[in-house]
Design a protein around this nucleic acid. Structure first.
Ligand SMILES: [Zn+2]
Ligand SMILES: [Zn+2]
Ligand SMILES: [Zn+2]
Ligand SMILES: [Zn+2]
Lengths: 140, 140
DNA sequence: TCGCACGTGTTATATTATAACATCACAAGC
DNA sequence: GCTTGTGATGTTATAATATAACACGTGCGA
């Protein structure tokens, strides 16, 4: 395991595609984009290996409840991140909550559980979607 | 949408299988168990619909990072749950952390995000696995 | 030069999940 | 009784997500 980045052309290309996406992006979407960019089909292992690498480096995060990936909003080290996921418009914002992290650290330690990786995903309605109508009226 | 439970035989059978499992259990594992119990194959939609129902009722939880399901440890209403997931032995314990929940509520509200469903999954090493050896030595 | 580590390509397949439609049982209303 | 609607379950097919296993090439140090 090395500490420094090895951003090969493939990894950089995939990272750029993820950064360019306004929403979390899925593995097979990236695969399609990559195939088109390069003029030949890219296969699943190519993209999954790259996503693994970028995730391990902390450059992107996987959003478990969406099976999708998003560039980290807070640089290469980001231990306190929380995703606010709007189920209406699909927007996901990454915030930091030191308080939540501390609470979890305390709760884990109390049970002698050594926390290594924390995933916090909050589903709901973002500001724009939540205020569309006072009391929950969706177009059918 | 009704408030009270409709635990049909299928739903009860699946719920019992989940409760009987010492670990989170996967949809296709349940499908296999169910097929054997009933002496004929059960198909995927049967189990997924049942899991949806039980999840919506709060009787079970889905663990997103494992694609697996576990019975709720805290009765039919459980808004503050956190999963401590041991990556060594696979044990998952469900705890409650009001503090984490409050921290997230505050952080969400500050961004005018209306939180509806929160998923907190902490991966790491449980007490038993974390103390096996002082500094991380796994059998190869 | 040789062997190794590692990134990538390729083939095949495993795992997870849903769409769409058929059937059945039960209950409300006639 | 019959009709009709509703919700649960069964069935068929397929979509979406992910990994195993092996091949190939390049660079690098022994
Ligand atoms: Zn981040
Ligand atoms: Zn929104
Ligand atoms: Zn619970
Ligand atoms: Zn353990």
């Amino acid at each position: 395991m090395s500490d420094d980045l090895d951003l090969t052309p493939l990894r950089r290309e995939v990272l750029d595609m993820i950064k360019a996406s306004a929403r979390p992006i899925k593995a097979y979407e990236l695969l399609g984009l990559l195939s088109r960019r390069r003029g030949r089909v890219a296969r699943a292992p190519t993209i999954y290996r790259t996503l693994d690498y970028l995730t391990r480096c902390g450059l992107i995060h996987r959003i478990e409840s969406l099976n999708a990936y998003q560039a980290c909003a807070h640089a290469p080290a980001c231990p306190e991140h929380v995703f606010l996921i709007c189920d209406d418009c699909g927007e996901v914002s990454e915030i930091e909550s030191m308080d939540a992290r501390i609470a979890l650290e305390i709760a884990s330690t109390a049970r002698q559980f050594r926390a290594e990786q924390v995933s916090i995903e909050v589903h709901g309605a973002c500001r724009a979607c939540g205020t569309e109508t006072p009391a929950r009226a969706k177009k059918p």
